[in-house]
Design a protein around this nucleic acid. Structure first.
Length: 334
DNA sequence: AAACCGGGGGG
DNA sequence: CCCCCAGGTTT
């Protein structure tokens, strides 16, 4: 028992697994529900467990089975996704649900899963391993970090990734791929963290080359940060009879398909008038200063009057929820 | 290979 | 303030 790091890591998972609503209990005979595994994996793409957990539960209450999700209008799904970001995930989720239901269920192998919208190499391997007990190897940033440290593979992941992935495949235990993957996630999230790893309580530190080196945090090497450009624009607050005029953004690109305030396009540059009412919102690739101006009547084009009493149901992404909160003096989302 | 795509939590 | 997160798609 515990003669190798795989067994110690699986034991760690058995005894310390985080209780998460999409998981089967470790050691359970019943594998996790593919619908829940898929939904959780998509929500967790670039989004933290703390953010996802309550949203996952709400989502599942609304659409308990994938058939319910496939039958829902895309706009409903986007509204439920509001605030989670990366809205292409929600559009792909909808397309994927419809494809899965049309085919009578999820493909149970990695290649079949990989062909579905929004399911890339990682997510396909994760679903295959966790929901279908296949010997696939889901490699995410947690796994990359843990394996790079374990094997002492120095340098930035952009350069070492092929070596790290090969090492991961070599050490992945056959027959336990799903539990091992989730053990890796938990270890990476709670112990083998990017900064301040807790090697003092790590179940596999004695196998770890980075721990032996005395500076585990140096692996993997940090990548150089780049400057974030500034952009500016104006949104229009058009209020009449207790309702505000909203529009739907184009189906692709920034905030694609989401409900929004109408306004100008966004241009490069710092804000023109910092004293005018505005909101700040920082996206991955730029920071936006959005001035909010009152207008008397809607511009041309499609849109709808959203009652202020139900503004929270409109599914505004965070940028526009901030702008609406500025104008109404009340928070827009719960 | 690199760019694009949100948002929030934590150090 | 900076950093990072259970990535996928497009160019």
């Amino acid at each position: 028992m515990g003669a190798n790091h795989q067994n110690r890591l699986l034991e760690f998972y058995r005894e310390n697994a985080r209780a998460l609503p999409w998981r089967a209990r470790p050691g359970s005979n019943v594998p996790a529900d593919p619908y829940r595994v898929w939904l959780s994996e998509v929500m967790l793409q670039q989004t933290t467990v703390a953010t996802v957990t309550p949203r996952f539960s709400r989502f599942l209450e609304k659409w308990p089975q994938i058939e319910d999700l496939a039958a829902a209008p895309l706009e409903d799904l986007l509204a439920e996704w509001a605030g989670l970001g990366y809205y292409a995930r929600a559009r792909n989720l909808h397309a994927c649900a419809r494809a899965v239901v049309a085919n009578g269920g999820f493909p149970q192998d990695e290649a079949g899963l990989r062909a579905l919208p929004g399911i890339g190499a990682y997510t396909a391997a994760a679903i295959a391993a966790i929901a279908f007990e296949r010997d696939s190897v889901p490699i995410d940033t947690n796994v990359e970090r843990v394996v790079a440290r374990l094997e002492g593979i120095e340098g930035p992941l952009a350069e070492t990734r092929p070596k790290v992935h090969a090492a991961a495949r070599a050490l992945w235990p056959a027959g336990r791929a799903g539990d091992y993957a989730q053990a890796m996630m938990d270890l990476g999230a709670t112990i083998c963290r990017p900064k301040n790893p807790r090697c003092d309580v790590c179940p596999i530190c004695e196998d770890c080359a980075a721990f032996a080196s005395g500076d585990p945090e140096a692996i993997p090497a940090r990548k150089a940060k780049k400057v974030r450009p500034e952009r500016r624009g104006t949104a229009w607050w058009i209020e009449k009879d207790g309702a505000v005029w909203l529009v739907r953004r184009p189906g692709k690109g920034m905030l694609g398909g989401m409900a929004a305030l109408p306004g100008t396009s966004w241009e490069d540059g710092a804000p023109n008038d910092i004293d005018a009412p505005h909101v700040r919102h920082v996206f991955t690739h730029f920071a936006l200063t959005l001035a909010v101006e009152r207008r008397a009547s809607p511009p041309g084009g499609e849109g709808w009057w959203q009652p202020l009493s139900s503004l929270g149901d409109a599914g505004l992404p965070t940028l526009y929820a901030k702008a609406a909160a500025l104008m109404t003096g009340q928070p827009v989302r719960a």
